[in-house]
């Protein structure tokens, strides 16, 4: 209707739809929150490689009378340490997270108003399975710290284990760790692959079609963090020299860099990265690789 040239986009402008918050189904919201909570407590993906024990995904939540004392007790008896700062709610510990032998545990004081009560006089409703290298040492330490031995350690086909009731009324099944539960990558293990390509998005498309990869944007332009594979994979766009560069784990990056140079390779500057220390090297034939000191 106007005299100016028609704008083919004009009718479409009325489609603009700023995101208006919509609350999803509460059941979905609750389930996703729980999924996130579990995912947040899972160790860094680099270590998931050999975390194969079924218990690692189970996070028991303890309600105890006097959570502060319990935190100290679990530290003494099982070598637990608290992760982050416990959430304090007045006089109560509202939520605390403990790490014990690579496993995670939640702990809080009773919240009778939410129906969360500490164990009563009956048998504890939840047992806690703990893998340790030396069952006898842990059980005797726990016993001398006030635990009640429910079943002394015995050798079973699946390993040595025993049961005890701790002073707060919870049952622990203390079990020797399976021989193959090696949580951290060993020196020399490939821990990360970087795909250097001209067009990262296109590489993601290709490997998405071939291998089903999905990714989230990385922190560099056209960089992508692939979700899922072990070892972890990153895609970096903008490289005119396509190639895959592995990262190998090392114990001591400075020693490793010296070894690279002694063996006739080249090593760049050691950089602090989110995962630890990293350095880009080339072997004596020019093949690039990263060394990573994780943690």
């Amino acid at each position: 209707m106007t005299s100016s040239a028609p704008d083919p986009e004009r009718p479409f402008r009325s489609l603009a739809r700023p995101a208006v918050p919509v609350s999803p189904d509460p059941a979905f919201a609750t389930a996703l929150r729980e999924r996130l909570r579990r995912a947040l407590l899972r160790p860094h993906p680099i270590t998931t490689e050999s975390r194969s024990t079924a218990m690692s995904t189970l996070i028991p939540y303890l309600v105890v009378h006097d959570a502060r004392a319990a935190l100290t007790w679990y530290a003494e008896a099982f070598g637990a340490h608290t992760v982050g700062d416990p959430y304090l709610d007045g006089d109560r510990v509202g939520h605390a997270e403990l790490e014990i032998a690579g496993a995670t545990l939640y702990l809080a004081d009773p919240y009778p108003e939410y129906g969360l009560e500490g164990p009563g006089d009956g048998k504890p409703p939840v047992s806690l399975h703990l893998s340790v290298p030396d069952v006898d040492a842990v059980m005797s330490r726990a016993e001398s710290a006030g635990a009640t031995i429910e079943r002394p350690a015995t050798d079973e086909p699946y390993g040595r284990g025993g049961r005890l009731i701790d002073p707060y009324g919870h049952r622990w099944m203390v079990q020797s760790a399976p021989a193959d539960a090696e949580p951290a990558p060993k020196p020399g293990d490939p821990v990360y692959l970087t795909l250097n390509v001209p067009d990262g998005r296109r590489a993601l498309d290709f490997y998405g079609a071939v291998l089903g990869w999905t990714a989230v944007p990385g922190r560099v332009p056209d960089g992508w963090q692939v979700e899922g594979p072990t070892p972890m994979v990153g895609i970096g766009g903008g490289s005119d020299e396509p190639g895959t560069v592995p990262m190998y784990a090392v114990d001591d990056i400075e020693v490793a860099v010296a070894a690279v140079r002694t063996a006739g390779g080249e090593a760049g500057e050691i950089d602090r990265q989110s995962y630890g220390l990293g350095v880009l090297c080339r072997d004596d034939q020019g093949l690039p690789f990263w060394l990573g000191q994780l943690g």
Binding site: P21, V22, L32, R33, P43, A184, G276, G295
Partner: peptide
Amino acid sequence: SRAVAPPPDPGLLSLYDRALPEVYGYLL
């Protein structure tokens, strides 16, 4: 010692209640 498995940032869960309707409201 925790650099490989950094402590979970409570940030995401504390953001969750506010962010969930925003993300869902964008996607739906």
